[in-house]
Design a protein around this nucleic acid. Structure first.
Lengths: 203, 203
DNA sequence: TTTATTTTTGACCAGTTGGTTAAACTATAT
DNA sequence: ATATAGTTTAACCAACTGGTCAAAAATAAA
């Protein structure tokens, strides 16, 4: 019964995602995932042979979902500054809805760097730079952006939105003492980060 | 024999640090730590009653070491811009020598946010702001820094140096395709991050 | 040397974990 | 209805894990 199949398999996948994201690969228990899905533990192994298989399926989906959020920026028909503003609005909103993803991904990537390599291989940065150069060739001379500085710039842009979520546990503690909620801080950040980057790259 | 005591206890602590940082609390095995220290597993429990005790000791020491690196910036007798340059030089050099610390700390903080709260409570941010205001009262009007934007600014500054290490697994993969080594990227970053921040805060 | 104290060890244990298996159940096809 | 194939379960297992304990070894005190 393909219908029920999908239901069960999906239920397993969703439960696994929740448990893995919260506890990490090492901390997650197959029994937890089974309970969470309301099924027998053996059924997990029926659909996904091992814990590793299940984890890899979950990890790959999440990683792709995360990377996909960076893509739209490059084909949007906007000025460079508006692209930056657009990116932070979109990306931070996405992370607000999936606040545990950064910490999960960073941790698992660190635990097994090889796993992410396959996904990275599909990214063509040279081409990315060419697109950027073409789309903004007339306004690019107003900014401190060169082909050489792209890695530094890109990682800085990502850092400003990803880091606060990855470091939420500390940040929340500090903000609390100042009477600021993490949500307010993050909402404010959409604009702050964009302004920050724009000023930093302006000649 | 207090002499030998210290030796053994220290050897355990160092081994535990290495294993915990590499594998995390969940991934670390007491047997691994014992092997690493060249002693019997029961001896771990003799000095540190449980895995939790041992982990907490390790975690607290590392967290304090990490936070301590932020402090010198506030009492150095330098202009604001030089303080920023000084910070990145010092902080990134420290992380170059302890490249796994960011991922470890972020992960464990995320796994148990309560643990870090105690350490944060000692930080007086209001006082920090007062110091900054006093030390740089004549040059502060040249920058876009207000009491309200301090959390956004501070977290941004930290993000630029910490994030690349936390995301090393991804970053290294991307840099590799461009023929850049992580070490070169990180060395370059000491200056890039400082310039980036300084331009971003300048009026 | 003898005694008392501390440090270190090997053997062991109970609980947990990922994974297996044979049987029961369900749905589809003949 | 009955055989067939796919789905789900309860019971089970071997390996592993943190932790214990009594005895041995090493050190200090008498």
């Amino acid at each position: 019964m393909a219908e029920n199949d999908k239901q069960t398999e999906e239920k397993i996948f969703e439960s696994a995602t929740e448990v893995f994201v919260e506890k990490g690969m090492d901390g997650a228990r197959m029994q937890d995932i089974a309970n969470h899905a309301g099924i027998n533990k053996a059924l997990l192994h029926y659909y996904y042979r091992t814990k590793d298989h299940l984890f890899n399926a979950v990890f790959e989906k999440i990683a792709k979902k995360m990377f996909a959020k960076f893509a739209p920026v490059f084909d949007a028909n906007l000025t460079l500054e508006d692209k930056i503003r657009f990116f932070y609005k979109e990306h931070i909103t996405f992370l607000q809805n999936n606040p545990r993803l950064p910490a999960f991904l960073l941790n698992e990537i660190n635990r097994n760097p090889a796993r992410i390599r396959k996904l990275i291989q599909n990214i063509d940065i040279e081409n990315l730079w060419r697109m950027l150069e073409e789309q903004h060739k007339d306004e690019l001379n107003k900014y401190n952006i060169t082909r050489e500085s792209i890695p530094q710039l890109m990682s800085s842009i990502a850092a400003l939105s990803v880091f606060p979520f990855a470091a939420r546990g500390i940040l929340e503690g500090i903000l609390e003492k100042l009477g600021i909620s993490f949500d307010d801080y993050m909402e404010e950040r959409k604009e702050f980060a964009a302004d920050f980057v724009i000023r930093a790259i302006k000649k």
